[in-house]
């Protein structure tokens, strides 16, 4: 009558073995990420380690604004000005990017419908795919004369220029992530609020944004990480001069741009070469911390 006797849950069939095989393959895929990140860290640490042990004065390295590694008599390795350059550009970029990206995300996610919405999403993604050298080129050839004319300053390759360029660059990515965060808010939340007579704006401000808070914060932090790591656009638009900026009209130099511009000219294994790798370690640690924080924030883990 029944097939109770014929069923054998101990028999491992072909499907079971395929399942195990696939698990093994994807396990190696997953592990490879860890292998790569450790490999990269080991590599840059190895290259920069001699400098950290022998030449580097940690206090001078982080507090001296003088970066003169090519000085043959007394080379100076102080990255304070470079940190200030990266931080000022990234900070300004965020001021530009946050309103743009949040506004775009809210419009695309909450207001736009049908074809408008689809078109905008495609355009935003296209914007995110523009190579950074193109952005740098825009900074160099378009923004530069505009800034000189508009503000009557001698040089247009400044914190302002690079900040705006970097802000426009990061905005599409932040928009994408922020819109995902808004989309993840269930519609029943909106319906429940709308059913109480809340206006569209009230629904967004009181219900949707608080519910998407973690995702939005994560989007901003990933924007920060992107700003820190961006090289080419910043190299072209900042003016690339070592300087602690007093205003947005000063030229600065970024950590990443320093590595990009100087690594090719240094002798492998020299103090200068190793110093550049030490900057690399510093950048690696900073981006790692930012990304980790972003990840924890997105997951809603509270610290402390």
């Amino acid at each position: 009558m029944s097939d109770i006797a014929t069923q054998d849950f101990d028999r491992r069939n072909r499907d079971w073995y395929i399942d195990k095989l696939v698990q093994l393959v994807v396990f190696f895929g997953g592990i490879s990420a860890i292998v790569f990140i450790i490999g990269i860290f080991v590599f840059i640490t190895k290259e920069g380690f001699g400098f950290i042990l022998n030449t580097m004065d940690p206090v001078e390295f982080f507090t001296s604004p003088y970066w003169e590694p090519s000085d043959e008599d007394a080379p100076e390795y102080g990255i304070l000005a470079l940190i200030a350059g990266t931080a000022s550009v990234t900070g300004l970029a965020l001021i530009v990017a946050i309103p743009f990206s949040l506004g775009a995300a809210i419009f695309v996610g909450e207001f736009a419908t049908g074809k408008t919405r689809e078109l905008l999403k495609i355009l935003v993604e296209l914007l995110a795919a523009i190579p950074s050298v193109v952005w740098g080129f825009i900074g160099l050839t378009i923004m530069n004369p505009i800034i000189i004319d508009l503000f009557d300053v001698p040089v247009g390759l400044t914190v302002l220029n690079a900040g705006i360029i970097l802000g426009l660059m990061t905005a599409p990515i932040m928009t994408s992530i922020a819109e995902d965060a808004l989309k993840a808010v269930p519609d029943r939340y909106r319906e429940a609020a709308e059913a109480m007579g809340a206006t569209r704006w009230q629904v967004i401000f009181k219900v949707v944004l608080p519910a998407a808070k973690n995702g939005l914060l994560g989007a901003v932090l990933l924007g920060v990480g992107r700003g820190f790591g961006e090289t080419m656009a910043v190299l072209l638009a900042t003016g690339h001069s070592v300087n602690i900026p007093d205003s947005v009209f000063d030229s600065v130099r970024a950590l990443t741009a320093t590595i990009a511009a100087e690594l090719g000219e240094t002798a492998v294994g020299s103090d200068h070469y190793q110093a550049l790798f030490t900057i690399g370690i510093f950048l690696f640690v900073i981006t790692f911390v930012i990304n980790l924080t972003a990840d924890l924030v997105v997951r809603g883990v509270r610290k402390g």
Partner: peptide, 8 residues
């Protein structure tokens, strides 16, 4: 303890 949980 059975070996093929998918069959189960």
């Amino acid at each position: 303890t059975l070996k093929n949980v998918y069959a189960l």
